[in-house]
Every structure is written in C-alpha cells, then in structure tokens.
Computed example of a mutant assay.
Amino acid sequence: MNVVRNHATLALQAHVDELRRAAGWLHAEAGARAVPDEAIGRLDLCLHEALANILDHSGLAADATLQLALHLQPGSATLTLLDSGHPYDPTMAPAPARPTTLADTLPGGLGVVMLRSQADQLAYEHRDGSNQLQITVRWGEAA
C-alpha cells in the first residue's frame, strides 16, 4: 500500500476474498483524511458494486491484479478502479427495466443502478487494455 498526502493506492487480486480488504482499506484511508461517514458509506457501496461486477463479469483470472486509488480534494473523494478485464462502460449501460410483477423480479442486475444512485459523478475510460472507472462522491458545499 502506497500513501501520499491526499492520495492512496491499493493492489489486490481479482478474488471475492479481497472485497473485505478493499472495504477496510477504503474506510481506513478515507477516515484518516476526515471524509464524512456518509460519504465513506456511499463510496463503500460503490466500491462493493463495482468490484462485484468486475469479479463476476470481467473474465479476469483470480490471480489477476486490480488497482484501487483514492484521491481527495476539498469536499470530494474520487475512487478509481483499474482492471484488465473485458471492456465494460457502466456509464453507458442501459438501466434495467423495472419488473412489473414479483414473478418478473430476478436477483441481481442492480449494480449499475446502485453506482449511479450513490455516486455524484461516474467516468469510464478503456485505454491500453485497461478499464478505468472513476467514482466521485461530494459532500458539504461541494455536493
């Protein structure tokens, strides 16, 4: 783990066991930088949904490396996820249709909806074989 003033990074393997470590890192790093609890909770939810999507759908081997970065500015935090899986842009993914009956309701499929509802800004880029997803949360006057 590399920590620089308002920036922190973490490398982890593309394995479900790493979700808890990633969440712990996020809480420790954001908390140490006085990010409000509400903003940390929103970032944590986005982190969980984004990592779950990467692990479930990217085609990465369990020993592949993912990179996380947290960058803070006054009133905002940006969490960046880098992976080398199949290109996927959650900012352009269509929202799933709402089920009209209980029988039509299927588990899952709400990761993109959760990201969009919790993040103040999402940005995606695929460059040099890597997906880069940036999730920004704002608080206070910057919100």
Rank of each mutant, 00 (worst) to 15 (best):
M1D: 11
M1L: 08
M1K: 08
N2M: 06
N6G: 11
A8M: 05
A8V: 10
A8K: 04
L10C: 09
A11I: 05
L12N: 04
Q13G: 13
H15W: 08
H15F: 07
V16K: 05
D17A: 15
E18A: 15
R20P: 00
A22P: 05
W25M: 13
A28Q: 12
G31C: 10
V35C: 04
A39Y: 10
I40L: 05
R42K: 13
R42T: 07
D44F: 08
D44R: 09
L45D: 00
L45K: 00
C46L: 03
H48L: 14
A50E: 02
A50F: 02
L51K: 02
I54H: 00
H57N: 06
G59C: 08
L60R: 04
T65R: 15
L70V: 09
H71R: 14
G75F: 12
L79H: 03
L79M: 11
T80N: 03
T80I: 07
L81D: 01
L81P: 03
D83E: 03
H86K: 15
H86R: 15
Y88M: 13
M92I: 00
A95M: 13
R98M: 10
T101D: 03
A103K: 06
A103M: 00
D104H: 01
D104R: 02
T105V: 02
L106C: 04
G109K: 04
G109D: 01
L110A: 02
V113A: 14
R116L: 03
R116Q: 10
D120S: 11
L122C: 00
Y124H: 15
R127E: 11
D128M: 04
D128Y: 06
D128N: 10
G129Y: 12
Q134K: 13
I135K: 07
E141A: 15
A142V: 14
